[in-house]
């Protein structure tokens, strides 16, 4: 069953540096029927995972991963045409211009909102 706003059967990459938040999101996404890729908490790990995964439907990205920013991961996804959202506590004004149009979901978020933002 794969409705337009549904996560069922979608392969969703999760990039989040906090273990418990990542774990929470993973559970929530899985509960909604998504197949979670990751979670991973670092830029290099995320890039490696993207590199070795042929099929990705969408991604949820935390903006700040420890001391680095997630933008290289965003660029890699943009290049592959994979839709993604930022799950972040950061205000819109802090996000650099090239990513200004990317949807933001404030943490903590509901999986339905992510689903709508990604596939709605």
């Amino acid at each position: 069953m794969m409705g337009p706003n549904s996560l069922t059967g979608r392969r969703v990459l999760l990039v989040e540096d906090d273990y418990f938040i990542a774990d929470e999101l993973r559970r929530d996404l899985a509960k909604s029927g998504a197949e979670v890729l990751g979670p991973v908490g670092r830029v290099d790990e995320a890039l490696a995972l993207i590199g070795r995964t042929a099929h990705i439907d969408g991604a949820v990205l935390d903006i700040k991963l420890h001391d680095e920013m997630v933008y290289p991961v965003a660029d890699a996804l943009l290049e592959r045409g994979v839709p993604f959202v930022f799950a972040t506590g950061y205000d819109k004004s802090v996000i650099p211009a090239p990513y200004a149009k990317v949807r933001r979901c404030e943490k903590p978020f509901e999986p339905e909102i992510v689903a709508k933002a990604l596939f709605g």
Partner: peptide, 20 residues
Amino acid sequence: AELQHRTRNLLAVVRSIASQ
């Protein structure tokens, strides 16, 4: 901006501690 980020992040941490 940093304060906003920290606060929201902290709420997410609290939420995950609660469910754990």
